[in-house]
Nucleic acid binder design. Structure first.
Lengths: 282, 282
DNA sequence: CGACCTGTTGAGGCTCATCAATAGGCGTGG
DNA sequence: CCACGCCTATTGATGAGCCTCAACAGGTCG
């Protein structure tokens, strides 16, 4: 079987085309990176993320433990892979700044985006188990991550049961979101899927203090959206035109604007106003 | 907006039709129920499921703990709900005999089947967390379940760290399967989805000793399959006809036959032969 | 036997994919 | 500086895949 990875062709006017996507976020650090430098393990106490409503508060003792498991702070360029398919890893990451993508590649060369990872999300837990994960992680923007010793889970379970409990709850929450995505793909149309995704991103960003107004910069291309909601790039464009013409959402020049979240929520079946669950920040 | 729940109509020949599905498994207990009676909490030591390769072995101490958390053994009729959407529950179930369905209802009256639950699967963990789950559980056949005190999780995390570890691994495994389903719906066609689903069911049943030969009885209707893989009932029929005509899989009179698993696996991208992960049986 | 349900098949239509063309951004090298 | 390579976004045309409606055969149960 031949796997087509990239097709190049020239149009009548002489323009050269190529189907292979690229990650073009090398120049966007200023939008997705905080300007503060990382202060080392002890800085968990003053971590800018921890005061955000997305994360449950921690005691000083808990912070000491987490700080102790923190090995270093790393930066990745946009497009750089963090974890490859099936890879086994002895470390976990906490995404600190920037966006990442969790995805799977298929034998026919197509990609399914499984999730958009935002600051505070835990990366690489499945990769610490034998067999690893069939999913890969790639940086969508320039990112920085906190590197945690993979033993953190075992130590948590042993010495910090309240943490382990919270982690299980986080996993259950993730599964709820996965169920939602499946339901969207299985039982709703194109514009509903996209609308739901945008609202979910909006709420997740809001809880992290990253969506102050009614507009926000999204480091997301049409193909990322398409691979996430199970559509083609072209059809994503069309569905977004529908949303724009109905004044529900506009994503132009990478700036997302949602004029009226209520309307978009009604259109896409998003449960707006439901209290959002907090998650554990490791 | 009018939500249509059921449509009845009469054809030219006088036949009356109705779009509302039913659960018609009341007479099938003999196929999905073991004949042995439940022996009470102490019987975890002699549980017929535990010796199956799907589940990791337990020490006598672990079994004592689990047995102590076991409150009773319950039976549900086919079609009976175990957990309703959003419901909060103080108990967990371990499915012991029979099949169950995890699903979500949408506002437009359609259903998305999230998973088929088989003997040994844990039911209701998300329902123990505040807010519950948006998914519902219903018995697909007559079933029996072991009822566990909801405090089992907290106690596990506190007193049995190796169990808590295993539970986290189970959750990660579930997420892998969820990722797979999402990828199937987003990026593959009808017959691939169905083929994959059937092979996955086959392997899960095999590891539980419930698929001895190359044929097995599946308590699954077209509409269950359809709601699971994101297709209409009618199109499931057509896709299964294709599979039958290509001699890949046959599901007639509720008996599934896979003449050659290799061929079906090649057709649907199923990773046959990959060692299957064991899970924890509570 | 009739009420009710499931499964199958055909006809027609809608949604979405694919192919193709074009405009335009961004970086690079002449 | 402009030309060019390379990429993304948008739009039109066409077709494939899947849905919906309809009809009917056959099963099960009272």
């Amino acid at each position: 079987m031949t796997v087509v990875l990239s097709v190049r062709y020239r149009t009548q006017s002489g323009t050269l085309h190529c189907t292979r996507p690229r990650h073009g976020w090398s120049g966007c650090a200023k939008f997705f990176m905080a300007s503060t430098d990382f202060l080392g393990p002890a800085s968990c106490h003053v971590c800018a993320l921890r005061c955000q409503p997305a994360f449950r508060p921690h005691s000083a003792r808990e912070l000491r433990f987490i700080g102790g498991m923190k090995k270093q702070h790393l930066a990745f360029a946009a497009g750089e892979p963090l974890i490859a398919e099936g890879q086994n890893s002895r470390v976990l990451y906490t995404l600190y700044e920037g966006w990442a993508l969790r995805f799977r590649m298929l034998a026919n060369g197509t990609r399914q985006v499984l999730d958009f990872l935002l600051p505070g999300d835990l990366i690489g837990l499945p990769a610490t188990f034998p067999g690893g994960s069939r999913a890969s992680i790639v940086a969508l923007t320039p990112i920085t991550v906190c590197v945690l010793d993979g033993a953190v889970i075992a130590n948590l379970v042993r010495g910090h049961p309240e943490y382990a409990d919270a982690l299980l709850r986080d996993q259950a929450l993730e599964r709820e979101r996965a169920d939602t995505r499946l339901t969207l793909l299985g039982r709703t149309g194109a514009s509903e899927r996209i609308g739901y995704l945008l609202l979910e991103l909006r709420d997740r960003l809001r809880m992290r203090g990253l969506f102050p107004g009614r507009s926000v910069m999204l480091p997301v291309q049409r193909s990322d959206l398409a691979d996430s909601v199970g559509l083609s790039r072209v059809h994503v464009t069309r569905a977004m035109r529908e949303l724009r013409e109905r004044n529900l959402a506009d994503l132009s020049d990478r700036v997302l604007t949602i004029p009226n979240a209520q309307n978009l929520a009604r259109h896409s079946g998003y449960p707006l106003g439901k209290p959002l669950a907090v998650q554990t920040l490791l």
